[in-house]
Structure formats: C-alpha cells, structure tokens
Amino acid sequence: MTMLDQLLNFAPKIPIAEATKSTTEWITDTFSFLFKPIKQYFGDFMEVSSDILMSVPPIIIILVVAVIAFFISGKRFGLAAFSIVGLWLIYNQGLWDHLIYTFTLVLISSLLSILVGVPVGIMMSKSKTAEAIITPVLDFMQTMPAFVYLIPAVAFFGIGMVPGVFASFIFATPPTVRFTNLGIRQVSKELVEASEAFGSTGAQKLFKVELPMAKATIMAGINQTVMLALSMVVIASMIGAKGLGREVLSALQRAEVGSGFVAGLGIVILAIVIDRFTQSMNKKKAS
C-alpha cells in the first residue's frame, strides 16, 4: 500500500496555485498603469450610462420598449404587452434603479463580448490553427466555475461594476465566438466559390457573402451571450456590482425569501424581454 502510494508521490506537489497567484500579482503590478485608468474611466462611463437611463422617466422607457417590441415582433401585441406589464411590475416593486444597473451591466458586457467575439470567431473560421488553439480556450472559459473569475477581476479592477463586466465578459463570450465560427464555416462551398470566381477580395467575400449568410447563426450565438451575461449579474454582485443581483444576494444573506423572489422575478422578466428582443431581430433579418 505504502509502496503504491509512493509510486504516485514521485514528484512533490506542483505549485499551480502559487504560480497562478504570482502570475496574477505580476499582471496586476505590471499592468496597473492600464487597469487603473480602465477602472476609472470605464467605471465612470458605466455610472454615467446608468445615470442617463435613470434620468429618463420610467414611463417613457416602458413605452419606448413596448413600441419597439410591437414592431420587431412583426406588429403583434404579445411581446409589447408583456414588456409593459413586466417592466411596470419591476417599477411597482421599487426595483427600477436596480433594473437599470443590471441592464447597463448586461448591455455593456454583451457589447464587449460581441465586439471581441465576432472577430475572434471570424479568425477561427479562416484558420485551422486558430481553431485548434481557441477551441480548448473557449471550453476552459465556459467550464471553469464563474466565481473563479471574480478573484482576478477584483485583483485587477477592485470592486464595483468594472470587474463585474470583466467576469461576465469572460464567461459570456464563448458562444458568440463559437457560433460565428460555425456560421461562417457552414456557408455553402459553392457560394464561397462563386464569390471567389468573380474576383472578390478576402474582405469582400467576408462582408458580402459570408457574414450575411452566417448572420442568423451569429445572432443565435449573440442571444446566448446576452443570456449568459445576464446569468452573471448575481455572481457579479458578490464583488460589488450594483443591480438586481445585489438584491438577490442580500436577500440570501438575510434569508428573506420574499424579497429574494421579487428580485429574482425582476431578473426573469428582464431575461425574457431581452431574449425575445434578440430573437425577433434574428427572425426578421433571416427571413
């Protein structure tokens, strides 16, 4: 028995945790000149964005959302009616400001994910090597428990909205990358050949043929990304991100089932509205 144990003990414990720690510390120290202004300006930017949205009377936001919902769902009333009732309910429960913070967090981190994810996906679709390298990285990003990202996020950006965006960016970007790659690879070979046979440059092929053809798939990926970003709001609240997530968290800490349910319901309503919005945009463009 001891002999067998010794077989496994041929090497001392590999200091992965220590290495990670020192690497993170090194990054924090070395790039603090970068992280500080990001935290500063980006944080300010998010505060200002939230403040602007909050300065708009809720009734106007609700109506605007309802009107947009009416048009993007093909002039049907279902989504518009749901938006009005749902958003009003959140207002009614006194969660309006939290809703705005959550929405800002989701919006900004999703935009960031799309901004980075789509180009990375394109790169992946164009190169087998890139695909071979990026795929395991994406798997890692998605399977590592999301809480783990909070630790370096705090190290880099302190607490608040910015590390929240950072953590949800890492957690939510993979679907956009994957679906962009998939969408472009799925474009029929003959269409790609057609665009090449007429003398397209690489960029013309991408923008005139591949991206338009892959749009529906990419939009499906973006929808996933937005949903994942939303699922991060509760986790991000643990490092000080404001919003509905913080309400859920504090209800959890105080074991208040009622207010926890209400805040959770707010997230559900927001999720449904955002999901239907992104899906309708996709359907409209695809048809």
């Binding site: 029929s188 003959e190 057609a194 007429f198 003398g199 397209s200 053809m213």
Partner: peptide
C-alpha cells in the same frame, strides 16, 4: 483577381445564387 473579374465568368451546378 483582375483576370477573374475581367476575363472569366463562372456558372455553377446548383446555381450558387446569393439568397440574401
């Protein structure tokens, strides 16, 4: 590219029209 644009046209078996 220039030759493809100016001298060669191609027609495909399954048409390869751009559906969008």
């Amino acid at each position: 590219r220039k030759t493809r644009r100016e001298k060669l046209g191609m027609v495909f078996q399954r048409f390869a029209l751009f559906p969008h």
